[in-house]
């Protein structure tokens, strides 16, 4: 999972470089990210012979369209009792990272949420852990802490009268909220 994530990160960084070639910070990011990807590939036993190379297809027109659509997505959902970011949300997070890097004055609040099971304060702490997981992902893509605040609503915005794990799925999420919105 980490490997794919890193590759996605490279794709985003490369895309960022291509669309904004004048930004030296992003070139530096790319050079740092590349060896980590190789190391993780080796650790997982994949591509260790350097034969099975993964293709990163960069089509900037397509990316630009995707960005607009992905940036409109502001919710990252989680599994029960988990703060692991699911594969399907990595592009979404990467697009927000790209936006934040391009808009250094913009601040974002990551609001963690949980379902109703468990106590209020412990759920607040669990929601915080989810918010921190998204923050860490943004940090990894170069977004500084100064642009991010993590807070948690715990179970306070959860659907009421939801007793089982399935109906609580929409509640287990992090909302990405831009300042002033």
């Amino acid at each position: 999972m980490k490997q794919l994530w890193t590759i996605a990160a490279i794709a985003v960084v490369l895309t960022a470089c291509k669309s904004t070639p004048m930004n030296p910070a992003k070139v530096e990011d790319a050079s740092i990210t590349r060896p980590i990807a190789k190391e993780q590939s080796n650790a997982n036993g994949n591509a260790s012979d350097n034969i099975n190379i993964k293709t990163v297809d960069i089509d900037t027109t397509k990316e630009a369209q995707l960005d607009a659509a992905e940036l409109a997505k502001r919710q990252v959902f989680f599994d029960y009792d988990s703060d692991a970011i699911r594969e399907e949300y990595k592009t979404l997070i990467a697009n927000h990272a790209k936006y934040l890097l391009a808009h250094a004055q913009t601040k974002v609040v990551l609001q963690g949420n949980t379902d109703e099971r468990g106590t209020h304060e412990y759920n607040l702490a669990l929601g915080q852990r989810r918010a921190v997981a998204v923050k860490t992902a943004l940090n990894f893509l170069g977004v500084p802490d100064s642009q991010i605040e993590t807070v948690s609503y715990g179970e306070e915005r959860a659907k009421q009268n939801c007793a089982d794990v399935a109906c609580g799925q929409p509640d287990r999420r992090v909302d990405i909220v831009y300042a002033g919105q």
Binding site: E121, L124, A125, Q128, R129, V132, K135, D145, I148, E149, T150, V151, S152
Partner: peptide, 9 residues
């Protein structure tokens, strides 16, 4: 009180 700043509680 419980504070988080940017990390866990």
């Amino acid at each position: 009180v419980v504070l988080t700043y940017g990390a866990n509680s």
